[in-house]
Design a protein around this nucleic acid. Structure first.
Lengths: 193, 193
DNA sequence: TCATTTGTACCGTTCGGTCTGTTTGAGTAC
DNA sequence: GTACTCAAACAGACCGAACGGTACAAATGA
């Protein structure tokens, strides 16, 4: 059968839409208009708006995994520098993203306490990222930039959770300076515990 | 004039409602039903739903300031212990709050990037809390539990932002253990930078 | 008395989703 | 190559409910 609307492209557009508008503030009509679909096409491709969001969260999570893997790949740099640099870059991107933060964090905050499926999906996306970051934390421990005495998993949790926190803060103030300072301080603090 | 509905009580109920449901997912009808008001009474007391939220955010912020001030007041304990203990308690409360997180954080995340007034109100609530916490951070620096070489304001930012981050994480997983571990690790990390 | 507060019907719009008829094109038979 | 089949894909009118908010009359009480 001929498929007029590429599901992947629609999901990519959906990511942007949920990212900018949130979940409850975005209607299926808007999704259809933005993707050039009709309701018939949309509901033929996706079971429901909720189900569409789940697909978007998963796709966004995978995109992020690839992005982080790439950001952390440079073999010539110290692990700790790569980690800090990556987070600083993501925070520096916020003004151009209109301080929309991170889709995973946004959905976690808006509806994960009310919708278990979304909770699971966002938690999975978060955990997947930790799996990408943790090896770099272990490397930083071996390189003496993070105390080897602490559990690498917990450090990774701390780092990425802090990122979510300062990201939300940047959103409200529409200013990323303090967030970058806080994130930088965190990474420095991890050296000797 | 006789006022049937105490504005303060209505705002208190509103805090709960926005806290549990978010902003876009909560209708004025539900607010009226939950507070026992009619629409006439509601719109006589508040300019709009948005305006009502602003009042709720401000009241919630003040409540939080009082709560934190009290939590940090014990003169016999070391400042660092009071700080950590306070955050652990707030995280331990999450299961009984159905992992609804923190209203300020929730509203920051859901709509502050789209609604400037809410952005300002949540940012103000956040800053007010920092003003309560920072003196305790300074005290901890004097007591040798936080490195005196770093800016106390930035440390305070970091601590409370991290709290927001781990709170969101706890929401999605409906589990506060990792959040408590991460928060504890952060406070320990601040000792020697 | 009269401004304020309240009750409620009502407004136009949007919500998520359904229904039904039409179009599409790969597969099959010849 | 052509004709036919048929399930999938699509268009869009339509559904009842809920949305934020208004209008206006009735009730209230200083």
């Amino acid at each position: 059968m001929n498929i007029k609307h590429d599901k992947e492209k629609v999901i990519k557009k959906g990511i942007d839409l949920f990212w900018c508008n949130g979940y409850s503030n975005l209607g299926v009509d808007k999704i259809c208009k933005a993707t050039g679909m009709t309701k018939g096409a949309f509901y033929n491709a996706f079971k429901s708006k909720e189900n569409f969001l789940l697909s978007c969260i998963e796709a966004y999570g995978n995109m992020n995994m690839n992005y982080l893997t790439e950001q952390l790949s440079d073999q010539n740099k110290r692990a700790i520098d790569k980690i800090l640099n990556m987070y600083v870059i993501m925070l520096e991107n916020q003004p151009s993203l209109n301080f929309t933060g991170c889709l995973t964090n946004n959905m976690m905050s808006e509806i994960s306490s009310v919708n278990e499926l979304v909770g699971n999906a966002t938690a999975r996306a978060f955990d997947n990222l930790l799996d990408v970051i943790e090896p770099m934390v272990i490397k930083a421990q071996l390189e003496g930039d993070i105390s080897p005495s602490v559990d690498s998993k917990t450090v990774t949790e701390l780092i990425h959770s802090t990122f979510f926190g300062v990201l939300t803060r940047a959103k409200a103030t529409r200013d990323n300076k303090k967030s970058i300072s806080a994130m930088t301080l965190l990474i420095k603090s991890l050296k000797t515990i």
